[in-house]
Design a protein around this nucleic acid. Structure first.
Lengths: 248, 248
DNA sequence: CGAGGGTTTGAAGTGCATCAAATAGTGTGG
DNA sequence: CCACACTATTTGATGCACTTCAAACCCTCG
């Protein structure tokens, strides 16, 4: 189900960031698009590399990370369908501010940065859209830093689950971890072993049920009561959904 | 030495973010400015509050932080002379994304957000300046998160000191902690006691000399060798200086 | 001099990381 | 359908880093 140019144009037209852009611009953009297919663990680009293209995810999961000289890595974010990444390189000396790798087999579209760069300069509406998108992401990052500082492992997991759920629902909830537990662990800044034990503690403390990657509970309040007091946002924490995105 | 309107206009004209703005806009902005003087510990605004004005720092230090329901707080950043804050509220539902408080006696200027908001919409150059400013800040946040994940307390202190220094200098270096140690500790996400002990370890490991708030060393390389291997950026880490700033 | 904040030191506890090994789960070829 | 290989996940044991609570010390400033 690789996207053809027409499909890509559609994709662009339905991307919030490009809302309000001239069709002609989007056409030029999709003309220069390239489909990318990759199995698990394919490195797309590395931190510091010259940035010429950015990516949109059609399917699968992408891990953004930074690696130190001594080889350990910190996961910046994990993205999926509908997310873009690499586009902020325009403002970062045209180099990628992180590395990117497929975390699950994925299908992507790569697009030229140069075109977007010139369009931003010409089109205030796009600049504004980009600004609010970056602001949204910033909010998420602020929150992330806060959580790492103030929440312990089980609370961070609880919060992650909450942000994975539809926060409006009142009744019983069933969740599915979107990717493997090791990856969730790294996303939350902890070791796989810690994740496993912390999930156990969370279960113990809240009464949620866990079967493999499936998690069930009577109501979200079980999680809210457990962790949300250690956070600066009130519960229905809109805009902070795991699946929502800003400019990365 | 409170700034009068003329002084404030000068200040605005010399602010990178407003470079390239019409003098008439800056005049209107300074017309609506208000000087703010405050001793230590004055709360300027709180997280979530309706945001009508943003601030420029003329003198002193400001702490940005977020507070959880159970009262503990996470320090987002600590800013000084030349820094602005609160201006990104424009893109955050017009509410402040953090609380702000003076960490030392300070002199500030408050300015109306509404004016900037409309100007951004009208003036692409300002929008672009804002974008690159936000990108710069983002980079710092990314790095911060990485450091919290990968570096231990003494390394984080070493890195902080490096970013405080003029990274070009080759010879002996003398540094002054810019604000009290408790505050540095919170800025680095650790307890005052941990900071004290970690600074001791750093001294032990690198041979730097510490007298109160003054720190001396033969060369920056003593710190670089100690901690920079646990970071994803190469040493002269430009743009990440403690005193440099992006849009908060 | 004395009060009060900032800073250091000590002792004890907690949480997470690490290393090692067992177990569960998944896909493969027979 | 089963045995095997391989990976993901869990569990156990231990150590280290940071926190917490408590007390001492130090410095500054009235």
């Amino acid at each position: 189900m690789t996207k053809d140019k027409a499909g890509i144009l559609d994709l662009l037209k339905n991307t919030p960031l490009f809302e309000g852009c001239e069709p002609s611009f989007l056409e030029r953009l999709s003309d220069q698009s390239q489909p990318v297919q990759a199995g698990k663990g394919k490195l797309l680009f590395v931190h510091g590399e010259d940035a010429r293209r950015f990516y949109m995810i059609v399917r699968g999961w992408i891990k953004l990370f930074r690696e130190t000289l001594d080889g350990t890595q910190a996961v910046v974010d994990i993205l999926t369908q509908g997310h873009m990444f690499g586009e902020t390189s325009i403002f970062q000396d045209d180099t990628y501010p992180y590395s990117a790798e497929t975390a699950e087999p994925a299908e992507l579209v790569s697009l030229p940065l140069a075109l977007v760069k010139s369009e931003i300069e010409a089109n205030p509406q796009l600049a504004l859209a980009m600004l609010s998108s970056m602001a949204r992401y910033r909010k998420q990052q602020d929150q992330e830093l806060e959580h790492r500082t103030l929440q312990n492992a089980p609370q961070r997991i609880g919060c992650f689950l909450l942000r994975l759920a539809d926060q409006g629902s009142e009744g019983p909830v069933t969740l599915h971890l979107p990717y493997d537990k090791t990856l969730v662990a790294s996303r939350l800044g902890m070791q796989p072993e810690t994740f496993s034990r912390a999930l156990g503690k969370l279960k113990e403390a809240t009464g949620i049920k866990i079967k493999g990657a499936t998690i069930e509970m009577e109501a979200l309040s079980q999680l809210v009561d457990y962790g949300c007091s250690a956070c600066s946002s009130e519960f229905p924490c809109k805009d902070l959904n795991v699946k929502k995105s800003g400019c990365r």
